[in-house]
Amino acid sequence: MGNYSKNISKRFAHTRIKQGYCLICGSFGRLSPDHVPPKGAITITKVEQRHISEVIGMVPSDVKGVPSPNGSKFKTICHECNNSHLGGNDGEVARVCKYLTLKIQDYFRYVDHPYNFIVTDVDSIKFARAMVGHILAATSIEECKKPPEYSPYFQPLKNFVLGDNSALNDSHDIYYWFYPFKRHVSAKCVAFYNEGHLSLISLLSFFPIAFMITKKNEGTYPAHASKLTLGDERLVLDLSSLGYSYSAFPFHGLKGNQMYALTDFQTIVSYPIGQ
């Protein structure tokens, strides 16, 4: 029994709660399970969750993940935030991802392409509001057990999700790129060091897109990434194979003096099982 318990993901200790402080609005009460990635944006299947620290450099079978029969879920936000502020915008994420998936299928079905880019219309406010909200939610129940404290990094993100369209204008930048993997990665906060520069990164990656938030004018990001300005009416994905080695950023193979620091329960990977 002792050896078996050691092989269960530590994620198990960060999933069970009924009441707590909502990680978006800060209210105390009953918490609602939030699907991350949002329902509609992906095909909901049976998945397992693990901390990404349990995955990197290890054979996947070494640690048994926490199973969920219907997608990856986090019980860290209240019903109002889940249904109004996130659910009211998730439809745009679903629409964009479905359209991009069809365009990507066409791109790889046919050999000759004059360009490596695919484009879709987007309501950037709705899209970003949903994605930022899911990033805030995708963490441990430990953060719900005490009243929220002010954070100059996270408060503008919360304000934006709650309806302030200008909350990120002076505080954050958003980048996105093609993400060609089945596994889903959520990282609420990672410190990434590259060539003498330290950046804070928040990330949500699932096929076909990686969505990253950084501090204003301080971010490190893949060269093939595009910047999303709130008010944009188009998303442009670069499908060139030149970007594949960095598509899992920041959890790609580190090079040179690159390094990162993270809190394990804030960085979760989920992956389909039984398929």
Results as ranks from 00 to 15, higher is better:
Asp173Tyr: 03
Gly57Ser: 13
Gly88Tyr: 14
Ile268Ser: 10
Ser140Lys: 02
Thr220Ile: 14
His35Glu: 00
Pro60Gly: 03
Cys25Trp: 06
Val55Pro: 05
Leu228Gly: 04
Ile135Gly: 00
Asp264His: 14
Ile174Lys: 00
His134Lys: 08
Asp170Arg: 12
Ala41Thr: 00
Cys78Phe: 08
Thr214Cys: 05
Val236Thr: 12
Lys215Gln: 14
Leu200Arg: 11
Gly253Pro: 01
Ala41Asp: 09
Gly163Gln: 13
Glu233Pro: 02
Arg234Met: 09
Gly29Ile: 00
Gly256Ser: 07
Glu54Thr: 13
Gly88Thr: 08
Lys98Trp: 01
Ile125Gln: 01
Asn194Phe: 07
Pro156Ile: 00
Cys189Val: 14
Thr101Met: 05
Phe249Arg: 01
Gly2Phe: 07
Tyr176Gln: 13
Tyr107Ser: 14
Phe12Gln: 08
Asn116Val: 12
Glu92Val: 08
Asp34Asn: 11
Lys126Trp: 00
Leu162Met: 07
Leu242His: 11
Lys75Pro: 02
Lys146Ala: 11
Gln19Gly: 04
Gln258Leu: 06
Lys103Asp: 12
Tyr221Leu: 06
Lys6Val: 07
Leu230Lys: 07
Ala138Tyr: 03
Gly231Ile: 02
Phe192Cys: 04
Gly231Thr: 03
Lys98Phe: 04
Tyr246Lys: 10
His172Glu: 04
Pro180Leu: 11
Met131Ala: 10
His252Pro: 01
Val122Ile: 15
Val36Ala: 07
Asp164Phe: 01
Ile209Leu: 12
Gly71Ala: 05
Tyr221Met: 12
Ser72Asn: 10
Ser247Val: 03
Asn89Asp: 04
Gly219Trp: 01
Ile209Gly: 11
Lys103Phe: 10
Ala94Lys: 03
Lys10Leu: 15
Ala248Ser: 10
Tyr260Ile: 05
Pro180Tyr: 13
Gln275Ser: 12
Leu230Met: 02
Asp264Gly: 06
Gly29Trp: 03
Val122Ala: 02
Arg234Thr: 07
Tyr244Thr: 00
His252Met: 01
Ser240Asn: 08
Ser32Arg: 04
Leu100Pro: 01
Val111Gln: 13
Ser32Thr: 15
Gly40Met: 15
Asn159Thr: 11
Ile209Ala: 14
Val132Leu: 11
Lys75Cys: 04
Pro147Trp: 09
Gly87Met: 08
Lys6His: 04
Ser27Asp: 06
Gly253Ala: 13
Ser199Trp: 06
Leu204Asn: 15
